[in-house]
Each structure stands twice: as C-alpha cells, then as structure tokens.
Design a protein around this nucleic acid. Structure first.
Lengths: 212, 212
DNA sequence: GGTCATATGAGCCGTGCGGCCCATGAGCGA
DNA sequence: TCGCTCATGGGCCGCACGGCTCATATGACC
C-alpha cells in the first residue's frame, strides 16, 4: 500500500485526485494540504511514501517546499503550465517526477508506483520515461492483505503479538530461521513495507492481529 | 512490563497468584493454564517473558513441558513439596529458578524480575541466590508508560506511525541519528522490550499511538 | 504430463540495529 | 552549590536483519 499526500491549493483538483487515487488498490491518499509549509507539517504526523505537489500555490512555491523535505517523502511535481525551467527547478529541488496536469490519471498512477519503487523519472528523456511508466502500468498486487498466504498470515500474527526475533519465530513455527526470513521478505513485498516493525503495524491496521 | 504466564491446575492458587502479581507495577499476568500442553499452546499466541510452572499437574509432569519450550519463555518451577531431585530435574529441563510454594510472594516477585533480566537462579547456592534476589527486591520502574519523557513519546508515536528507520526518525525530529538511538535504547528499557517492532506494538497497546 | 503456487531450505553480503560506556550543557529543586 | 534528570551527542562492536539468487518437494489445476 503506497501512502500518498497531496499538496494543492485547488480543492476541486486535490479532492478529485484524492477520490480517483483511492480507487487504486495499491495506493491510499492519507492527506490533502493546500500549501508548502502545510505539507511539511502534515508529513511530520502522517508518513507518506509519495507526495503530489503543485507548483502554483499561495504562501511559497511548491518547489521550495520539497527541497526541505529530505527523504521524508518522494515528491512528484505537477504543474498547470509545465515549462522546461520549471522541470529543471523541480529536478534541482529533488523531485522524482514532473508532470503537466494534462496527463491521464493512469499515467500519474504509474508514476506513483514507479517513484514509490525507487525510480527517478525526472532526469529521463520522454521515451525512457514512457518505458518505465509502461512497466508500472498495472496495480501492484493486493488490495490489503488479500494475497498473503496462510503461512504468511501466521507469521504476521506472531510478529504483531511481539515475537519479533527470527529465532523465536522459527521456534514457534517449527521451521528454520532461513524459511522465516524468506516468508518475511515475501510479506514485506506484498505489504509494501521495508522491515518487521512496519509489517507489524500494518498487520494490526489490517486486522490480521489485534493490538492487545 | 514483564509478561507472566501461569501454569497450575489448582485454580485457587493460580488465580490468587495472578491477582497478586497484577498488583506489581512491573509485571502482568497474561494467561493462566492448567497443564503442560496447554502452556505450550498458550505461548504460541501470547508471548510471555516468564512462566510460573507447577510440577504437580495432571496430564504430564510440568517439568517435561518446559523442556520443549526452548527460548520461548523462561520458566520458574514451583512445587508443593520441594525436593532436591525435583530441583535437579528442573535444572536439567532448562528452568531458571525453583521454589517451594511456601516462599513469600515478594520473593517470587523478585525472582520474576531477576529471571526476566537474564539471571539464572537455579544453579546457585542459597546465599548467592538470596543475594541476587535482594538486588531485584524493588519493582523495576514504570507503571506502563508513565516514566517516558516527552521526547521519548514523540519518538514512539512516530515509530508506531511507520517511521521505523533511524535516519528517517532523525530527520523528522531534527536531531542526529545517534540521539535517536539513545532515546530508543531508553524506551526499550522502560517498556521492557528488545527492539523497535515490540516498542511500536507496545505503543499502540498503551494508546500512545493509534494503529490507523 | 506439464505448469504454477506454496512451503521449505541454502548461501552470500552489506549495513543497520541494539548494547555498552561516556561526555556536555541546560534546567530544576534541595 | 550540589545533585539530579533530560536532551543532545560520540565511539565501538557484534550480530541480526534485509536484499539477492537459487534449489527442492509437494499439491492443485488443466
């Protein structure tokens, strides 16, 4: 599940995009803000892998804002009137992609997946960029935890119950530590997380395990 | 918070002990079972740092049960009629402490703290053992998360929100990675956990952070 | 019979994590 | 003034964790 934050002062656009992205099985809009500083503040309390940032916003340029975000989120800059020097400025500020607001939604969706996966689209020429987007055209697996196998759910449940060490997990399940790590790697990929802490939280959030 | 599981077929004793231990600010009884196999099964779904195991139980000797528990829990064996050969058998099975049911509650409480802290009491002679128990006579800190500082709560909240990597935590808080690790080490000690996964779960359980 | 998903397991490797001890400065209360 | 807590850092170290590729066996499905 890719968490997306939207920064745009045009409510109609922002909320419409929010609704549209929520249709995607592999992305979820976790917040909408209307200025650069507000984006910065929102990300403090609500992590998001990807942020969609408009250039034209009151109270400071959107590009100035993302320069100060560091690795907190990966920024995709969108502009009403896309120009080459805007693209250059976005790249300098550390944005991972740059689009005109005229692109199809599915292109943006593909870009979100690509950027969340670590791709950097902004420096590419058009043909290379389209090639990458092509690869991310389809939704990345599971609507939640649907694709988890039974064994993977067992491991997640234990993890969320506090059994975090590999050797303990292996003992409980009567399998080798190596197999535990293999299952965990598979879980990480399916839940789009990067370590067992995030997996445990996600397991609780998805209702696979109860917090108590 | 030390999680304790009690295995004893005498309900009066088990539940009484459960109530008594729950008074302690640093321990919590998370389950009561009445046989060795039931202990094994209960620990699969409910981790416990320490288990109080009675020797005299129907359906298999309590000592036989703990031999198969591995590192899932540290066992403290209690017996109605403590004998030297029972103590020897308990030691062989991997128990960390052995007591007659005649000992004062506070002695058992001290033993629970000692065993949870990694001490092995069963091989010690009486004077050495009493020395160790003396050191663990007082409750180990916090009634829950009361002793956490403001900064530590901030870090916990971020952790439970999915910000699990040290470098990301440092960026959000505008402090060095080293300081983040120092705070985390302090949190681990106060919550009696051993890694950030368990800390995040505990934070959710304590209501410091919401799962969603 | 062939293909696919699942569960099991191995090896290799870089580095992030957690344990340990220590230092400094600010703030506060005895 | 002394002592304490807290937040901020540093250094060191062992090892567990996560990323990668690969192998094998077992069912289910077609």
């Amino acid at each position: 599940m890719i968490r997306v934050m939207i920064a745009d002062d045009h409510q109609l656009f922002a909320e419409g995009l929010s609704q549209a992205l929520d249709i995607l099985p592999d992305a979820r809009v976790v917040g909408v803000v209307d200025s650069g500083p507000a984006l910065d503040a929102a990300l403090l309390n609500q992590p998001a892998e990807v942020s969609i940032v408009d250039i034209e916003m009151p109270g400071g340029d959107g590009i100035d804002a993302i320069a100060g975000l560091g690795s907190r989120t990966r920024a995709i800059v969108v502009s009403m009137y896309a120009s080459d020097d805007q693209r250059t400025r976005a790249e300098t500020a550390g944005a991972k992609a740059f689009f005109s607001k005229g692109v199809p939604l599915m292109t943006l969706a593909a870009a979100i997946r690509a950027v969340a996966d670590g791709e950097d689209l902004i420096g590419l020429d058009d043909t290379s960029r389209d090639e990458v987007l092509e690869r991310y055209g389809e939704a990345r697996l599971d609507p939640g935890a649907a694709s988890l196998t039974v064994r993977e759910r067992e491991i997640l449940a234990l993890l969320a119950a506090g059994v975090s060490a590999t050797d303990e997990l292996a003992e409980r399940l009567y399998i080798s530590q190596k197999t535990v790590k293999n299952h965990l790697a598979s879980i990480f990929q399916k839940l789009a997380v990067s370590d067992r802490t995030q997996a445990a939280i996600e397991a609780i959030r998805l209702g696979i395990a109860r917090p108590n």
